[in-house]
């Protein structure tokens, strides 16, 4: 294993910015009106963290992740989580080869660079546990054999905030493993209009003598705009982003205040602070900076912090929401 030491490298930073810009541009051609989500995906990619997207169906989550994977020449797999799934459906299992009579390892969909775990809250806790363990360890054990997952390995999970019956809400400890939880909203009016207009002009795709209407998936270009090496270079650039002491201090302060707040049952773990700083570094690179600003912190705070805190019963009864509490804390930071 090679360890990359962070060292400021303007050329690398420039390449990283171009890489991020290139990917955003490519994804932007396919997905309309989800710039922030694209940015969050990029942050997750650049930091090696995992991303949980919470949003209603039909918000182009799969398309987005697919487009990102194709843009960077990453191996991409999607798993639709259901209640009857078993851990082996995710991580794989040892199966007997009927031809040879030997056991061989069947690798599950987790062996990929980019995994879209669709509706993760539909699976039973043991499946979620297996998945989240793989995310944390970046390796799985099948038949007593430890198998490393490919690098990079990024999980983008989604969960649907409606239709909660028959779902297993992810416990806080497991939510904590997601670096970011981004809540997807509907696209704006203009964006939505553009989505429809694009679809109208797509026409048909002819294949096997028949035809099917073209979808946005058909617009995803096969030739990737960036390679994994480019991604690694960008990741190196992220590691070299300067974080001033003031930022670190305020970051710690933010995390501590969530713990001290009387409106919260519990606050953030130190992992939240780490995630916030790392994500801010990635955001800085995406925005062409080689240093983190408070703006990065403010922008990412909701996605990093909100799923790691729980509003107390009394505060909830008094009408406080997690977002309000966080805004309050952020307001007092400056």
């Amino acid at each position: 294993m090679q360890t990359t030491q962070p060292s400021p490298n303007p050329a690398a930073a420039k390449t990283a910015e171009q890489f991020a810009g290139g990917v955003r541009e490519r994804v932007g051609k396919i997905v309309v009106g989800q710039d922030v989500v694209v940015e969050r995906v990029m942050i997750a990619l650049l930091t090696g963290g995992h991303l949980l997207l919470q949003g209603l169906p039909g918000l182009a989550k799969t398309l987005l992740v697919n487009a990102v994977a194709k843009a960077i020449h990453l191996d991409f797999k999607r798993v639709q989580f259901t209640v009857d799934m078993l851990p082996s459906d995710i991580i794989g299992s040892e199966i007997i080869d009927q031809k040879s009579g030997d056991f061989r390892i069947h690798r599950g969909p987790v062996f990929t660079n980019l995994l879209l775990a669709d509706e993760i809250n539909r699976a039973a806790p043991k499946v979620q546990g297996a998945m989240l363990e793989a995310m944390q360890e970046r390796k799985v054990t099948i038949g007593g054999q430890n198998l490393k997952l490919p690098t990079p390995f990024l999980v983008i999970a989604t969960q649907n905030p409606v239709e909660q019956s028959g779902t297993f809400e992810l416990p806080e400890a497991q939510l904590d493993r997601f670096m970011l939880l981004h809540r997807l909203g509907y696209p704006g009016r203009d964006d939505e209009q553009m989505i429809l207009q694009r679809q109208l002009g797509m026409g048909l795709r002819r294949e096997d003598g028949g035809a099917v209407p073209r979808s946005a998936f058909d617009m995803i270009e096969d030739n990737p705009g960036a390679s994994v090496e480019d991604l690694v270079t960008a990741m190196e650039a992220v590691q070299a982003v300067h974080v001033s002491e003031v930022i670190v201090k305020h970051c710690v302060e933010l995390v501590r205040r969530t713990r001290e707040s009387k409106l919260l049952d519990f606050g953030c773990s130190p992992r939240a602070g780490l995630a916030l700083v790392n994500a801010s570094r990635a955001r800085a690179v995406i925005h062409g900076r080689d240093f983190v600003t408070p703006e990065d912190l403010f922008d990412l705070a909701e996605d990093v912090v909100l799923h790691r805190i729980r509003v107390s019963y009394e505060a909830s009864a008094a009408g406080h929401t997690g977002k309000q509490v966080l805004e309050g804390i952020l307001g007092t930071l400056g």
């Binding site: 003031v246 930022i247 305020h250 600003t293 408070p294 703006e295 403010f298 930071l333 400056g334």
Partner: peptide
């Protein structure tokens, strides 16, 4: 005016 004047506080003020 922020109680503790540092870069962070001033940036936060200007943003607001």
């Amino acid at each position: 005016m922020p109680a503790d004047v540092d870069g962070f506080a001033v940036v936060a003020l200007l943003r607001r």
